[in-house]
Design a protein around this nucleic acid. Structure first.
Lengths: 241, 241
DNA sequence: CAGATAAATCGTGTATACATCTGAATAAGA
DNA sequence: TCTTATTCAGATGTATACACGATTTATCTG
């Protein structure tokens, strides 16, 4: 009845020994993002335990990790439920992310060392290559490094943590943008302006450009969310049959 | 050998049924903040289980909650350790908090409804009363509501969550400011300016004043941290005897 | 037949038992 | 005596069992 996952281990970066709970959490995240687990769906421990072939203990741990990322919420004595991803909530997430990225950009433009600035420039050039090749997978990876470098440029570990936490939360909805090659190109163009602003220490421009850079993804994601709703509706119809 | 806690239930707000794990987490937080559990200290499950008279299961849950707040960090297969609270990290926390409060203030000044603005003013007046009476306990409670109202004024649930998360992280070090009555008064004076800025929709002023309001606590907390280090040093000497 | 109440069913919360891993102490060898 | 291997104690990771609570179904009463 329920489709079993053939393997829990992710093909990439299996090198470091990661716990079962984290793998379960990752798997559940993916399922939530892809709409297999619709918002509001109850996540029952015995079911998941059977599905993944483990006991309830690591499942509970995974669920707690999930709730920590706000992708699901727990009601005491009543189980864990997939969080609702309303358009309003999506807007709120992107606004928060945009504000945080802008903040990071402003501080980074002020504080980055010359070495860090050079590093950012280098990543930007490597990104150009992936755009030329249309290599969206590597673009996503390098793009992550690009933004990470910005965050760390603030020289504020807590701010880095906070920003990364929010990014994990929006990541599901950001990911879809990379499927469009035209978006890839315009994203890279925006990066150009950002890098310029950072290199010349233009605090205000860095902040504003980064804010816009994130908000540009907002609309795209809303369309994606709408398409998910269509899929969900289809599933509902199929289930009602 | 090890002093047992007489009760796990907190005297205040015991009304709502809260889980054991959360109570353990709270207790551990307090112990960490008060220096009973020094940074770097290993938190061993069997020990804590005995100490609180419960099994390892809820203890593990509590530790996971702790690590989610970054007050402790977990190394796979090697246990959970109390995070280090260096002066640099403290500065980073306060800077992040100040930036976030400023951000919230800016958005709140722009978006709060007249009802919300009125509510903020009302809380401000109630705070004035506690200052007059020197009632630091109620000041802390009302102060929390005051800032919560600001956060919610952004009309952005995610931003509220993020800000609250960081506040939980700095809360330990903010708390000490309320022990000083002079700080209570100056804190309230700063609130006055903030309320004025919000009421007249002065976006920039609200942001700047809130940034300063948080950073004012920074120095006080650094002194507190220094005093904690003294205590820790004394403990070390006593243990070495 | 509608509403309320009681019993059964199922999931969560907690405790206990077992497996695996880590760090250290000890023993063996050079 | 120092280095290295091995063993061993203890903690973490996982599985299983039990207690509690909630929800649902069935029964009873009006």
């Amino acid at each position: 009845m329920i489709e079993l996952h053939q393997t829990l281990s992710t093909p990439s970066q299996q090198s470091e020994p990661i716990g079962i709970a984290q793998q379960l959490c990752q798997a559940l995240e993916d399922d939530i993002v892809k709409g297999k687990l619709p918002p509001g769906k109850r996540l029952e421990e015995p079911l998941l335990a059977k599905r993944f072939g483990v006991s309830r203990t690591p499942v509970r741990e995974a669920l707690q990790l999930l709730t920590a990322t706000e992708l699901a919420e727990k009601i005491p004595n009543r189980g864990v439920y997939v969080s609702l991803a309303t358009p309003e909530r999506l807007t709120a997430m992107f606004e928060s992310m945009a504000e945080l990225e802008g903040m990071c950009g402003r501080l980074a433009a002020k504080r980055m060392t010359s070495g860090e600035r050079h590093n950012l420039e280098k990543l930007h050039h490597e990104l150009a290559e992936t755009v030329r090749l249309g290599d969206s997978d590597n673009y996503e990876t390098l793009n992550r490094s690009f933004h990470n470098t910005l965050y760390r440029g603030t020289h504020n570990d807590v701010l880095v943590d906070v920003t990364l936490a929010v990014r994990r939360r929006v990541a599901p909805f950001r990911r879809v943008q990379f499927q469009s090659l035209t978006r890839l190109a315009s994203s890279h163009e925006e990066h150009q302006g950002i890098v310029d602003a950072i290199l010349r220490g233009d605090v205000k421009a860095a902040e504003d450009l980064l804010y816009g850079h994130i908000m540009a993804v907002h609309e795209i994601s809303q369309e994606y969310l709408a398409s998910l709703r269509d899929v969900s509706a289809q599933n509902d119809r199929a289930a009602a049959k």
